[in-house]
């Protein structure tokens, strides 16, 4: 277990450095590149698709703690979050996310 924790810490340090690389590079080359190029448009698409794919995978095929919840509970929870965010609260992120969590809690209580 302690070996796993160490790898997690090392990975966090490496990913922090890897993320900073782009930030620092941005400062260094800021006067020499065009941010509105086609390359960055593509990179933006890939980044968006990456996180969309991860979230959709967590909803449909979760790993970790959410494994014990069922698909219909996750889908109903997501529906509650979307409904409160788009229909009821006029795009209040806090209210929408809270509604998703509350719906999941209620659905889990119903099951037990």
């Amino acid at each position: 277990m302690s070996e796993l924790v160490n790898e997690y810490l090392l990975l966090t340090l490496a990913c922090g450095a890897g993320t900073y690389l782009w930030r620092g590079l941005g400062v260094a080359v800021s006067s020499r590149i065009r941010p509105e190029s086609e390359l960055f448009a593509w990179v933006g698409c890939v980044a968006f698709a990456m996180i969309a794919g991860l979230i959709s995978r967590i909803l449909f095929l979760p790993s970790g703690a959410l494994e014990v919840t069922s698909l219909w509970q996750r889908l109903l929870g997501a529906a509650a979050a979307l409904a409160v965010y788009y229909l009821i609260s006029r795009r209040n992120l806090f209210a929408g996310v809270l509604a998703g969590g509350a719906a999941m809690y209620a659905l889990l209580l119903l099951q037990h």
Partner: peptide, 18 residues
């Protein structure tokens, strides 16, 4: 159960934000 509901808030945050 409350913990699971809180964990579920993480994907919900991204779902709504995105």
């Amino acid at each position: 159960l409350a913990k699971l509901a809180m964990v579920f808030m993480s994907p919900m945050y991204f779902l709504l934000l995105m």
